[in-house]
Design a protein around this nucleic acid. Structure first.
Lengths: 367, 367
DNA sequence: CTGTTAGCGCTTTCAT
DNA sequence: ATGAAAGCGCTAACAG
């Protein structure tokens, strides 16, 4: 008992080894060439004393601390988790640690949190889907080395993005090939950049295929948002909609659950597809057709970009991943059964929710 | 252009305000009482210069950096994610940040990673389900302030645990009340402490209710583990098993998926329950009966314990949460349909997997 | 109440 | 090749 007193410092090691602090430092950092004799003495002393350099002291003198920050709006989101995982593992492989800062969806705190986090680290990755582009661009510039993930940005900011618009177009094509002509997009959070990308994709898809109609229904990003949207979806279905594009898999999964209760068969009565390809997607019933986003790979890519920036390399091109369509069971040919007759007793209250809400954004997007 | 050169330091502020560095420091830290005149001058200078104190310098001189470390085996696990979220938010509310270290399931690296992470932080939370108890206890002592989460430990280590054994007992009682007499436990990772707790719970449940038989089947902790276990489960069902306790919800969800394909109706033919109550549990079909673990609250509790330790308070009692049974649809009364006749054509290959594998641990646990 | 003076533990010129 | 010494930016005694 009694391990009181200051930890052992480099001075202790130097004394024990009978050399100067400078020599100890050199040995420990492999700088310059040091007499083998001294090297051995130092190593012994280090081992004997169980010496470990103080990260704080090194940080102060070197101006870096082998740590990178990552700011996310919500650690509970599978997408961010995947990115964090990939980043964390890739960075760890090169001796870097990750500091996470969850802004808890409070957009207005994001900048201050990011600034503060960046001060403690050598670089930062910004995951800020809701922050207005201009502010984010400014922030990124100020916090360099910094990379933005999961959204694109005008200008030359280092970005690792996902081409959500392209994903939507691919998905719409898939639906078109299955014979669908009227689709409904369940939108994510209004201010979310990736939602805006998807909306843009919807518009592009319509432009490319005039025979296709797609309306937009505000929804959200979580299981219960999808669940809650089911009645509006059923109403839209009565209106002729045969396929639903959900903002993400969570929404799609929640929707699937409620649809089942309402007696709507998927994909026979209605086709559904999601985004992200979370692990559960393949295990849903029916298995969820989804656009796969390489979450962990995004994280890895973020790290390699960050590393380059830390090393002083030029910014380089933005990287944008194209989502890969995972065709599964939840989206099928527009088929036999269709219409309200499939709806069970629960369907009674549908009108209350109504299809009108679906019109909110529809004007600007619909054909 | 041209924001080259060192960042502004406290010396710059002092010069600008025409006072000493000490005064600046006092103002910034609210120490002692300072002449209002000086306070104003300093604040102005700080604002003018956009001065921000160097965390590295403060860390060095104060010996702390307002950061806590959390080591987890896999950031992809919903349980750890929830704890991290709760911890991160609670800590942030008091100005602390969280450094995460994902060991990527490599148990042998855990100690070194933890030690290294701890050096950079003021405290650490250890989430190490596979590390042998003795090594973990030693590590915890060495890394103090440190708290262990999601498992219990002999001795006086600060622990925030979950009473998994109790959860299992509650669950078995629930099954018993529903008329089940033969159960199957799908075990998690062999070396996992929380799996050991559950196994203990199984043993206790059997001891408490001699009429109950529970066998153990090795499985895993992920969706596909549960999926892969389905055939063995069906075999067990033929053997008279009417209920399945899955290691966690992921396993249960994976199992449910495959069971559906095999034509086994849940809960009519077989009852299933999980552990953790992940968000998806309530949205599964049938809704999954599960033992709820307050993930985020665990994280919050970890923080308050950590804060106390940082402040120098005595260790205090271990906290153990009792899982709450969420009764949903997947576990029902042992009922009408039962036995192999329910199995569809896919069931043909079942014998190959066989029930024998289920016997591995059964001897020591079964009644 | 305020300024001066030592360091915190390490790296890094700069002599030797 | 090695040691002495000067800081990195900040806080905390200690005088005044």
């Amino acid at each position: 008992m009694g391990e009181r007193g200051r930890a052992t410092t480099i001075a202790d090691v130097a004394a024990r080894a009978g050399v100067s602090q400078a020599s100890v430092s050199r040995v420990l950092n492999g700088k310059a060439s040091v007499d083998p004799e001294i090297v051995r003495a130092v190593r012994r002393a280090v081992a004997d004393l169980g010496y470990r350099p103080s990260p704080a002291a090194r940080s102060l003198v070197q101006g870096r601390n082998q740590t990178i920050a990552m700011v996310v709006p919500d650690l509970e989101n599978p997408l961010f988790q995947g990115i964090l995982k990939g980043l964390s593992v890739a960075a760890a492989a090169e001796g870097y640690r990750v500091l996470v800062a969850d802004t808890n969806e409070r957009v207005d705190d994001e900048e201050e949190i990011a600034i503060e986090a960046r001060e403690r680290c050598d670089a930062i990755v910004l995951c800020a889907p809701r922050l207005p582009a201009e502010r984010l661009a400014k922030l990124t510039a100020r916090l360099a080395p910094a990379v933005v993930v999961n959204r694109t940005l005008e200008g030359d900011a280092p970005v690792i993005g996902v081409d959500y618009a392209r994903g939507i177009r691919d998905l719409v094509e898939h639906f078109a090939a299955l014979g669908h002509r009227r689709l409904l997009y369940l939108a994510g959070p209004e201010s979310s950049a990736s939602n805006a990308d998807r909306i843009r994709g919807v518009a592009e898809a319509i432009a490319a295929d005039p025979g296709m109609q797609i309306s937009v229904q505000p929804c959200g990003s979580r299981l219960d948002d999808g669940f809650a949207a089911a009645e509006a979806v059923v109403a839209a279905q009565r209106d002729g909609v045969t396929g639903v594009l959900a903002f993400n898999d969570l929404v799609a999964l929640g929707l699937l659950t409620r649809l089942r209760k309402l007696g709507v068969r998927v994909p026979e009565d209605l086709s559904v597809a999601g985004f992200d390809d979370v692990p559960m997607a393949a295990f849903a019933t029916p298995a969820l057709t989804s656009l796969s986003v390489p979450r962990a790979e995004l994280g890895g890519q973020v790290w390699s970009r960050l590393r380059a920036l830390i090393a002083g390399d030029p910014v380089g091109h933005a990287v944008v991943y194209r989502p890969r369509l995972e065709v599964r069971e939840s989206a099928g040919p527009v088929g036999a059964a269709a219409g309200p007759d499939a709806a069970g007793p629960d369907a009674a209250g549908i009108e209350a929710v109504g299809v009108d809400a679906a019109g909110i954004d529809a004007a600007g997007v619909d054909a």
